[in-house]
Design a protein around this nucleic acid. Structure first.
Lengths: 230, 230
DNA sequence: TCAAAAGTGTTCGCTATACACCCATGG
DNA sequence: CCATGGGTGTATAGCGAACACTTTTGA
């Protein structure tokens, strides 16, 4: 018999912070899932997450989960919705505060966690435990909205990247195609990119300019309130 | 001594659903606040809200609170953020799932609640209990974002309204001024409005057309994905 | 007759979009 | 020399922004 040593006058739900971790493989948007080692849904894939501690905020809990799975401390992370249907966990009532994080796949180390984690392209995600399918769908919707207000894509690319990579990323997130020249022009005019001296030599191709994200310009622009139109 | 009859193996936070209820008085955006009758923060103004029941979702809880304060069952309501700092309530750990609701002030009846409720223009809101100032500010930020994706303003106006009223509402929410002719043209071109036969005679003024919101057109537009630019 | 607000249409500038040719590289 | 992809500029259309005069009404 387990010891039930926390007592309340009224019933309290358990609260978790779960993390939809997005990465970009150069072509497709991927999400990091973990295989559940225990019931319920043992053997099913699920979003990384766990109960929050009583002395940490949900954000801190989500960051803790993120670091456990990826080794990353400072990734972009953002709360997007809280899921509270009474029966969403068969054991007891669990409320989940959901975050999405954007990381560079190349920087992700295997987690401390015993649970095995794996990247899945968004169009090859298996059926997930609990209501995590729904959480993942909602995360994508929010990501697509957010991209109009913040240049979040840069969090998913290496520090230096080509314009083509950036275009592919935006196309993957928004599921559209852009004209190459128009995309180049729009991005350069925005002033969020710094063109580097270096070029990169691509396989069997002409060499391409490298860019990096110009955070100073971004902060300035954000003050004035800007929007990315697509 | 109170009876502590709910027992858990791990500590659980309490969870509330709080509601930022916005109304429009024709000139300014207002928010409905209730005066706290008990400690902590007794006598301070606060957002309506309360603990969620174990058999209802947070949304149901928020709607229940909304109805208690306003008598309204079907208002526009939307979750926008969950607040989880460990010390935000001095009594015990409380996590708050926050919603904002848009209502017509004229349809609001006095609440069932003993607590007295009062409308405050946004620029005359007193210091609030707990971290409710922060919650209110965040609600405004979200409302301003959301207005680009949904014609939420219509929820705040009477069923029939003049173009000038609509303009005043948008100006109040976004805190900008629009050119009257451009605003008229843009709104009419969008196709979200139905012009009515009736006109309304204004005090000491020329009579003005009345419009109502065309929900069929809106649903159609929404399918295709539209954005309101301002 | 005056003040206040409503109705209405045009012009201009900018931005989004569509689109084609040349160059460098490696095989 | 050919295939692949990178780099670059222009022309057009549509939209947003600026803007003025007339009409109605009641005081």
């Amino acid at each position: 018999m387990e010891e039930l040593k926390y007592h309340y006058k009224y019933p309290h739900p358990a609260v978790t912070a779960d993390c939809v971790i997005f990465g970009f493989d150069g072509t497709k948007l991927n999400v990091l899932l973990v295989e559940r080692g225990i019931e319920p849904f043992k053997g099913k894939w699920a979003l990384p997450g766990g109960f929050i501690w009583m002395d940490e905020s949900a954000l801190e809990g989500a960051k803790r989960e993120l670091e456990e799975e990826t080794g990353l401390k400072d990734a972009y992370i953002r709360q997007f919705h809280t899921f509270s249907e009474p029966k969403r966990d068969p054991r007891e009532r669990v409320i989940t505060i959901a975050y999405y994080a954007l990381v560079r796949i190349s920087e992700v180390k295997g987690g401390d966690d015993a649970a095995k984690a794996q990247w899945f392209p968004l169009d090859q995600v298996p059926a997930l435990a609990f209501d995590h399918d729904k959480i993942l769908r909602e995360a994508m919707t929010e990501l697509r909205k957010q991209i109009h207000f913040e240049p979040i894509g840069f969090e998913l690319l290496p520090e230096k990247f080509t314009m083509k990579q950036l275009q592919h990323l935006y196309e993957a997130i928004l599921d559209v195609r852009f004209d190459r020249r128009n995309f180049y022009n729009k991005m350069l005019k925005l002033g969020l990119l710094t063109e580097l001296e270096e070029k990169i030599k691509l396989v069997n191709k002409k060499e391409a300019y490298l860019y990096k994200f110009n955070r100073e310009n971004y902060d300035e622009l954000k003050q004035k309130g800007f929007r990315l139109e697509f």
